[in-house]
Amino acid sequence: MTAMRADEFSQGLDDQLCLALYLASRAMTATYRPVLDELKLTYPQYLVLMLLWEQGTSSVGEIGARLHLESNTLSPLVKRLEALELVTRSRRAGDERTVDVQLTRQGKAMRRRAAGVPAQICEATELDAANRARLIKKLRRLTEDLEKKQG
């Protein structure tokens, strides 16, 4: 990739990639809010549940790594899911330092209640499957490239 000169970039706020990504992220979260309010879930709680529906029991560390959440954010989130009786936490046998999170019966049932969420959000984006897949691929690549630069 060829390095770009500073004079090739607009200094205008509306031309900044960071603003476009920030606004898109806020709009996406706002789109999820009313849908998840019906389930009495926050967006981060929904992401944790999606991960558990996909992978089954996971450690707090594994959840944090996959969702890029720090433990000081994740721990209260998991405690709240436990208070809602959607998950349980337990120390891993053989390694007391590792806390595993698993779905309860109610947590598994929530999957059925939340089954329509992805379709509702996809409809709101007005992206067809091919464009949605391309956008996800580009955003993942952008994330990977930026994380490489961070060290």
Rank of each mutant, 00 (worst) to 15 (best):
E96W: 05
A130R: 15
V99A: 03
I121M: 06
R80I: 03
V117H: 02
G94H: 11
C122K: 12
N131W: 04
D100H: 05
T125W: 00
R92H: 14
D128T: 07
A129T: 15
R80A: 08
L84F: 13
A129G: 08
A114M: 07
R89S: 09
R89P: 01
L127E: 13
R105G: 04
R132D: 06
V101P: 02
R89L: 05
L127K: 06
P118A: 05
Q106C: 01
I121L: 06
L127P: 04
R112I: 01
V87A: 03
T104P: 00
A124T: 09
Q106S: 13
I121K: 01
T88S: 09
A124E: 12
R97A: 13
R105Y: 09
V101T: 10
E82H: 02
V117F: 09
T104V: 04
R92N: 10
C122H: 12
T98H: 03
K108I: 09
A115C: 06
A114V: 03
D128C: 05
R132F: 14
E126I: 02
R80N: 15
R89A: 07
E96Q: 11
E82T: 09
L84C: 03
L86R: 01
R113C: 04
T125C: 02
L127S: 10
E96F: 01
R91I: 02
K108D: 10
V117L: 05
Q102K: 10
Q120H: 09
A119R: 09
K108R: 15
S90H: 14
E85R: 10
C122D: 13
A124V: 05
A109I: 02
R132H: 12
A115Q: 14
L81D: 03
E123D: 14
A130E: 15
A93T: 14
R80P: 00
T104E: 12
G107C: 03
A83H: 14
L81R: 06
R89I: 02
K108Q: 14
A130W: 06
R97Q: 13
A93Y: 12
A114T: 07
E82R: 10
Q102G: 11
A119S: 13
R97N: 15
T88D: 07
L103G: 09
S90Y: 10
L127W: 09
R80F: 05
Q120K: 14
R91Y: 06
C122T: 11
R112W: 10
A115G: 07
A129S: 13
R112H: 14
R105L: 08
T98P: 00
E85T: 12
A119K: 11
D100C: 04
R89F: 03
E85D: 15
R111K: 13
E96K: 09
T98N: 10
R89Q: 14
D95V: 05
A83S: 14
A119E: 15
G94Q: 11
E82L: 00
G107E: 01
A115Y: 11
S90V: 05
R111V: 01
S90D: 15
Q102I: 00
K108W: 06
A124G: 07
R97E: 14
R89V: 07
T88A: 04
S90W: 01
N131I: 02
D100L: 13
T125M: 07
Q102Y: 01
A114H: 08
V99I: 13
L103A: 09
D100M: 08
T104I: 08
T125G: 04
L86Q: 07
L84I: 06
I121T: 08
A109L: 10
A109R: 11
G107S: 04
I121V: 15
